[in-house]
Design a protein around this nucleic acid. Structure first.
Lengths: 233, 233
DNA sequence: ACCTGAACACCGTTCAAGT
DNA sequence: ACCTGAACACCGTTCAAGT
């Protein structure tokens, strides 16, 4: 049996004429606060209900299920992303500004890392910025399907680097582990690979956030250079 | 309070002198079968226990918790990846063969998409292939931290493209939705973005797996060209 | 139109007790 | 050394009933 496709974005929300106790905006707001404060696992319908001084099941009036709630929260992430107008600056700068901003926003809301790539990014905010990104690569000179490919390449790179970073940050924030202990444990596992082992040990003295930023920029410029190479052919 | 770091790979497994009913290999095997057959949500300790003709809680003798079980399953994914020996072929070919293989394996086991980037890839199989990848980029000419950056760039790209693809495949396999209906629903959301809208509609006639492969290769060559550009400077 | 609480069918995990 | 079942503290979701 086929199950029908459902998404908050592809159906009409309930409309009310009165001003009742709860509203969708209010619920999304509370969801974001809960997620920012307690992480992905901190969000449950019961907790959310309690935070809103309502029964846990009241939320189901505004939202079909928890996934729809997360779709709404996810789109708010996209609302926070910025991108230099490709009409005003070079496409490289415009795309780079988008990538940096996307990374920044995800790291600010690490819970979003578990939603990225798992939920369709078809909320109004996601669409707004995706359209801009498409404009940027079109101005760069890509045509037809290559517009899609170029956009995918950039977002895939950003997602792929930022997801593990955000997950790690969330883990550290929640569990507050002893980072030196982790490094030692990992080094111990690497006895058969001396080259990797010495890398891990050496990393101990570096500032991890600085290294990660350099790594991100390295890859970003790699992707941008690669796109330029494709334009040249 | 700091919570100690734990991973299956950084602690001693229990050793037995007898040949008892269950074994770790057996459990991992059953876990993989369950995941392949029913997807991420199909795995529960109770179901796994039942499959092994054991109590659900027997598993806790071999594994500290469900996350450790998933760590073990995750490393099996890496076991399936192949990579042309960088000593024998060009670094480009070697890295490309790794990327293609990684994508193939993830798509074959879509449940792995939810683990990638969330779990440390420090199992024996993950290490084996990561070491090879490092060798390949070293032979390409990268040095020091740039080896890490180059490796990260490639894997981030593969993860970033493949995760959504695998999630989508898992969704389709499990829910068996009407794809045309989805396309129409998405098109309806895109009324304000005619360019994106027509793209979605036009996609209806294309073979999605072929398009995705082309998209993957486009991005992969982009990354490889970008790496070459970095070597040139 | 909106909200409620009880109830259902699940979870992962702990632990005392068994062999 | 290994396995068990009962029990705990959670989940998301449904639904009849209330206002």
């Amino acid at each position: 049996m086929t199950k029908p496709f459902t998404s908050v974005w592809t159906r009409q929300p309930r409309t009310s004429r009165t001003t009742p106790g709860l509203s969708r905006e209010q619920i999304v707001q509370a969801t974001l606060e809960l997620l920012d404060a307690e992480g992905t696992d901190g969000l449950s319908m019961r907790k959310l209900g309690a935070k809103l001084d309502a029964g846990a099941t009241s939320i189901y009036w505004y939202v079909a299920n928890k996934d729809e709630l997360l779709e709404l929260a996810y789109d708010e992430i996209w609302a926070g992303m910025e991108m230099a107008d490709p009409q005003e600056v070079s496409w490289r700068y415009s795309v780079a500004s988008f990538a940096q901003s996307m990374r920044r926003v995800i790291l600010e809301h690490p819970w979003s890392a578990r939603l990225i790539g798992r939920m369709p990014a078809i909320g109004p905010n996601a669409l707004r910025i995706t359209d801009r990104l498409r404009k940027a690569v079109t101005l760069a000179g890509f045509e037809g399907l290559e517009i899609d490919y170029a956009v995918s390449t950039v977002t895939a790179y950003v997602f792929g680097t930022t997801i593990p970073e955000a997950v790690w940050n969330e883990y550290v924030a929640e569990k507050n582990p002893d980072v030196n202990e982790i490094r030692e444990a990992v080094a111990a596992v690497l006895t058969d690979y001396p080259e990797m082992r010495s890398r891990v040990v050496a990393m101990g003295e570096a500032d991890p956030t600085a290294v990660r930023l350099m790594s991100f920029d390295f890859g970003l410029y790699t992707v941008l250079d690669g796109l330029e190479a494709r334009l040249a052919t």
